[in-house]
Write a protein that binds this DNA or RNA. Structure first.
Lengths: 188, 188
DNA sequence: TGGAATCATTGACTTGGGTTAAGAAAAGTT
DNA sequence: AACTTTTCTTAACCCAAGTCAATGATTCCA
C-alpha cells in the first residue's frame, strides 16, 4: 500500500490518518498472466490500480478482431470508465499480460472517497485530466499520422511498453495489421 | 449566467451565495463566425463554456491538413487541456463556426474554484469523466470501424451537429477525405 | 528436450480509400 | 441580381495498407 500513498502524494499531500482511511477502500489482488480482470458483458464494479505487472484493455469488434484501448503498467489506473459513466455493462476486456499485483477499488468506493475527501476528488480529477490529454494526443495521431509515424511516436512515448510486449499488440493499438507493422521496421 | 447555474446544478446543487461567488470567475464574450478563440502557438490561458454558437477545435499537420479534435456547441466546455496539463503552448486552433456567446474562465481560476469549492472540483471531475468516456468511444470507433460505420455512428450520436455544419468538417472529424464521405451517402 | 503454441517475417495479390480534376450547387457579398 | 467564394459531387486513376498464405523464429510447457 505504501506505493499507493507515494502515488497519491505526487498530486496532493495527505496525513497518516487520511491515508489509513483511504486504505480501507482498497483490497489487494494477485493476478496471473492470461487472467481476466474484466470481460465484455460483465457488470463493471471495480477500478484497478496497478502495483506491478502489465495489462491490456481491448475491444472486440463484430468480426472478432481485437483493438487495444489501453495498455497499463505500474502506477496506472484501469477500468472501463465508459461503462461506469453510462452505467452499462463493460464493452471491453482487460487481460493480464505479465504476473501482476493490483489494488481494487469499487466504483462506489471511489465516489465515496471523492465525496468525503476533497483531496481525493482533486486527485482523481488530476489523473483524469492527464488521461484525457493523453487520449486527445492519440486521437490526433490516429487522424493525422500514417502507420509509420504512429509507430515511431508510440515507441518514443512508451519505450518500456515496446520492450515488454509482443508486437502484434502494438499493431492492434496503432490500428494497423501485424504484417504492415512488421514491414515498417524491416524497411530501414 | 443563469444557464451556467442550470448547467452546474445538473451535477451538483449550489446555493445562491456559492453561485454569486462562482460567477465572479467568469467573463462573457461574444464571438463572430470565423473568429479564433485560440490559435496554434498561443499561450493557453482560458477555458470556454459555450452559451450558444458552434466551434471547432482542430489540429493542423505538417502538410497543412486540418484534423478536427472536437466540435462544440451549447453547454460544452472547450479548451486545449493538453496544453494546459503539460503547460505548453496550444497545438490546436479553435474557431467559431456560428455566431456565439461564451463564458471565459482562466485556467488558474478554474483551479482556484476547484480548490475552494469541493462541489466545483466534483463538477469538473464529472465533466471530465464524461469527456474521457466519449473520447474512448471515438478511439474505439477509429480503430475498428470503416468510414461508413464511423459516419453512421457520428450521425446517430450528434444529429444536431450533422445538420448545422458543412460536411467537409465531418470528414475531417472522421478521418476521411471529403470525396470519400460524399460517396458514402450517395450509395444508398 | 522436444513438440505445440504463439509470434514474426516475407511475398503475392487485392482493395478501400486517397488524390486529382472538373463541374455543379449552395452560400455569402456587393 | 450578379459575382465571388465555398462546398459538394462524380469520375478516373493510383497507392498504401489489408488479406491470404507459407515459412521461420520464439516461447511455453509437459
Amino acid at each position: 500500500m505504501n506505493e499507493l500513498r507515494k502515488h497519491i502524494e505526487e498530486v496532493t499531500s495527505i496525513t497518516d490518518e487520511e491515508f489509513d482511511y483511504i486504505k480501507t477502500f482498497f483490497t489487494e489482488k494477485k493476478v496471473k498472466k492470461h487472467q481476466y480482470l474484466l470481460q465484455d458483458g460483465d457488470k463493471v464494479s471495480l477500478e484497478y490500480w496497478i502495483i506491478k505487472g502489465i495489462f491490456r484493455a481491448f475491444y472486440i469488434d463484430k468480426e472478432g478482431k481485437e483493438h487495444i484501448v489501453q495498455f497499463a503498467l505500474e502506477n496506472w489506473w484501469l477500468s472501463d470508465y465508459n461503462a461506469f459513466f453510462n452505467e452499462k455493462e463493460s464493452g471491453i476486456n482487460i487481460v493480464c499480460m505479465e504476473d501482476a499485483e493490483v489494488l481494487c477499488l469499487t466504483l462506489s468506493g471511489r465516489e465515496q472517497l471523492a465525496a468525503e475527501l476533497h483531496k481525493m476528488e482533486h486527485f482523481f480529477r488530476m489523473k483524469l485530466t492527464k488521461g484525457y490529454s493523453a487520449q486527445q494526443c492519440r486521437i490526433i495521431s490516429l487522424l493525422s499520422n500514417n502507420p509509420k509515424k504512429r509507430y515511431e511516436e508510440f515507441a518514443s512515448l512508451y519505450p518500456n511498453i515496446m520492450q515488454k510486449i509482443p508486437k502484434k499488440y502494438i499493431a492492434e493499438y496503432l490500428g494497423v495489421s501485424r504484417e504492415t507493422l512488421s514491414r515498417l521496421y524491416s524497411n530501414y
